[in-house]
Design a protein around this nucleic acid. Structure first.
Length: 263
DNA sequence: ATGGTTGGTGCCCAA
């Protein structure tokens, strides 16, 4: 089974690119973030025409919004409003009565990495704590779980173009990395992407729009992640970032990330 | 240190 996570930065703008991706990669399940549309405004028919008959949406107007598109029927779906906010940042499905997929769009956190000065950064830290506590309280390490999405944190030194210069930049600050590690250790999570690229190699999934030449400057960050619990680790076939999709016409600033897994 | 771009909205905000 092939599963993708992709922050599309508006589903309406990225629809033709999504169609290409789905066909080229033969995806069974696609998890989207930043759809930026209400459930009513979602392009249902285009997605169904692509073969994704089973769609779970959690959208809102203009901001945030997540979706799971599937060719495979799922028997359960749900979402949680972490930190009790109204933002649409999570949606989950359960497949074959045993495997759960949790799709996240973690708050970006604004510019200033200080929760006392910046409510957006405070929101991000509280969100990470709440997700961590939820998995501790509601799931066990032996469960078969996949956690993926735009987590808006690049945890490793080589997940950013300059560890030293980004230590004070939101997405790579020590406090955020600590929150992500807490979540990683909440169950027996495994980082699927890093199984195939050693930690001493640079690896990014996001490149800012604010660069004359994103590829040449290559100032990227690995903000998008796919984790599986240890119960699924041996089933992983491959996992990779589709960097070339950052270079297509009218791209998202995030590249899609793929998991190939036996389920 | 600053500004750079994109998307959605409606007389700027978020990323």
């Amino acid at each position: 089974m092939k599963i993708a996570t992709w922050n599309v930065n508006s589903i309406r703008v990225r629809l033709s690119q999504l169609e290409k991706l789905a066909i080229e990669e033969k995806l069974d399940i696609i998890c989207l973030q930043e759809t930026k549309v209400t459930n009513n405004d979602f392009p249902h028919q285009s997605i169904k025409d692509l073969g994704y008959k089973y769609i779970e949406l959690h959208g809102e107007k203009a901001y945030n919004g997540v979706a799971i598109l599937s060719k495979i029927p799922f028997e359960q779906s749900f979402y949680i409003n972490f930190v009790n906010d109204k933002d649409k940042r999570h949606v989950a499905i359960k497949l074959f009565n045993q495997v759960e997929i949790h799709n996240f769009y973690v708050p970006a956190g604004g510019e200033i990495p200080n929760p006392l000065e910046n409510p957006k950064f405070k929101h991000k830290l509280l969100f990470m704590d709440d997700v961590c506590n939820w998995f501790k309280q509601n799931r066990s390490p032996s469960d078969k779980l996949i956690l993926l999405g735009d987590l808006n944190i690049a945890p490793l030194e080589n997940d950013v173009w300059s560890h030293k210069q980004l230590l004070t930049e939101v997405s790579h600050t020590p406090i955020e990395v600590e929150k992500m590690k807490n979540l990683y250790n909440s169950l027996d999570w495994q980082d699927a992407i890093r199984k195939f690229v050693p930690e001493n190699e640079k690896l990014y999934s996001w490149w800012s729009y604010r660069n004359r030449d994103w590829e040449k400057s290559d100032r990227g960050r690995r903000l998008d992640h796919i984790w599986v619990t240890a119960a699924l680790e041996k089933n992983i076939k491959s996992s990779y970032i589709l960097k070339k999709h950052r270079g297509i016409e009218s791209p998202s600033d995030h590249a899609p990330v793929i998991l190939n897994i036996d389920i």
